Each structure stands twice: as structure tokens, then as C-alpha cells.
Amino acid sequence: MTTHKTGTREEWLAARLALLKEEKELTRRSDELARRRQELPWVRIDKEYRFETDEGNASLADLFRGRSQLLVYHFMFGPDYTAGCPSCSAIADGFNGFVVHLANHDVALSAVSRAPLAKLQAYKRRMGWTFPWASSFGGDFNFDFNVSVTEEQQRAGTVEYNYQPSRLTVKPKAGGEKPPDGAAKGAAMTGTDVATYARERPGMSAFALEDGVVYHTYSTYARGLDGLWGAYQWFDRAPKGRNETGYWWHRHDEYNKG
């Protein structure tokens, strides 16, 4: 017997209509926030970023692939990782399906990571992905957009992430504080230690290209990525919601192992 509240169809409908009113308010608010994102001032990028892609060496403008807009997913895959971050992988599982729709509406999508291109290509083959993925190995792109930190920054203890100071807890402190459980599991699943794993962070950035000039228009991090994680939008509508008790997800080819 369920312990969840039950009721008649009439009681359910009354509650559902009340919720629908609030859902519509949230939708209107979301539309307004989208409009305000698009009204943010654009920042001209004069720095010459270089990337390695399947087609060869590329500039940031090249990543637009003939479109006027570019969305970059900052995928956690550091140079020392043996595999991509599992949570980033879960988000990226949806890219193959909608990248063609974006491309045919003047928007290019590309993942960018610091790992060398050969590692990214091998992981793409393993995951069965075909979306563009560029390597920023050896460059400043990830650091400038606050999704990677240096060992020196890490040792100093605080860096900026999600527009605020962010402390990197990578080893036990005197009081016995340990790294977050997710960091330890993420490190193990990417073949690194916690410190190495924690030098990469997830995020997404948007860019515009006009008259040969690239502009930075938007970036978001942390929970700001929830809307891009397609599975979570489905979980939020499931009877038990996200129903999470920790770092539960795996890469899509790992669920039936062991």
C-alpha cells in the first residue's frame, strides 16, 4: 500500500488545475528571463583562441561553422582524464539529436574540453556521438571562461566559479572534512585523483559572430545547466522526481556492467 497521498479523480483535477496555473506563471517568467539573456551586452573577443578539431586547427570563429551563433558546452575532460566526466556525458547524450536542428536555425553547437583531440575522438567513438567537439589543449580558453583552474589557483584555495568565490575542497582538512562524495566518485570514474578532477568545472557559453567579430553573449554554470540536462526535465515530471541519494548516474554504456 502506498504511503503517498491519494484522492479521487475530482480531487486530482482540482489540484492539477491549481498547479497548472503556477506552471503557466513559471513559463511566462522563463520567457521573460530568456528575453533578458538576449538583451545582455555583448563583449567583443579580441584574443586569438586556437582549437584542434576533426577538420584541423581552428579559431573560435571557425567553430561557428558558417552560422552567426555558437553555443559551447564546457565538457569536463581534462588532459589527465582517461574518460569524460559522467555527468557531462549524461548531458551530452542529448546533443546528437538536436545539434542538426540548431545548425539549421543558424546556431552551431560544439563541446570544448582541455584534453588532447585524440582522447576526445576516442571517447566520442565509445559513446557513439557525432556532434562537434574541439580541444582547447594548451590554450587559455577554459581558464578565461572560468571552467578550468591551475594547480597554483587550486593550492591558493579559492577561485571564481558561477560568478562567486568557490572553494575547492580536494583533500581532508585538519578537522576531518573530506571532499564531496560526488568529487571522489567523479575522480574515480575519470581515472584521476580528486585534485586533478576538481580542476575542471562544467558550464556553457554563447557567442555571436557579426562582420567577422566574435562576441561573448552569455555563460552559465552549476545549476544553471539543469535545463540543458534533458533527462532531468523528464525526472522532474516523474512520480518520484529526481529521487537522488548521491552521485548515482553512469555513462550510458556502464549501467549493465557488473
Rank of each mutant, 00 (worst) to 15 (best):
R50V: 12
L117H: 11
W133H: 15
H252V: 01
Q69N: 05
F75V: 07
G227W: 03
H4A: 15
C85R: 06
W133L: 12
G241D: 10
V170M: 11
P202A: 10
P79F: 02
G212L: 07
L117T: 09
A134Y: 07
W12L: 15
Y161V: 01
G186H: 01
P165D: 01
N57I: 05
E22I: 09
F95H: 09
Y218P: 01
T130I: 13
S166C: 14
R251Y: 07
L40A: 06
G66W: 00
P239M: 12
W248Q: 15
G138Y: 00
F207C: 10
Y161A: 02
G203F: 08
G258A: 13
T2M: 11
D144K: 04
V214D: 02
W42R: 15
T2I: 03
N96M: 07
E55V: 06
G182L: 08
R65C: 02
F207V: 11
H105S: 15
L117S: 05
L109H: 06
K24I: 13
G191F: 02
K178Q: 14
P172F: 11
S110R: 09
I91V: 14
M189C: 01
F98I: 13
G139K: 08
R155K: 09
E200G: 12
R223K: 11
V43P: 08
T27H: 00
E151M: 11
R36H: 06
T27Y: 03
Q164A: 14
E39M: 14
E210I: 10
W249L: 15
D144P: 03
H74D: 00
P79R: 08
S135M: 06
S110N: 09
G157K: 05
G139R: 11
N104D: 02
D46V: 11
G227T: 07
D181N: 10
T2F: 00
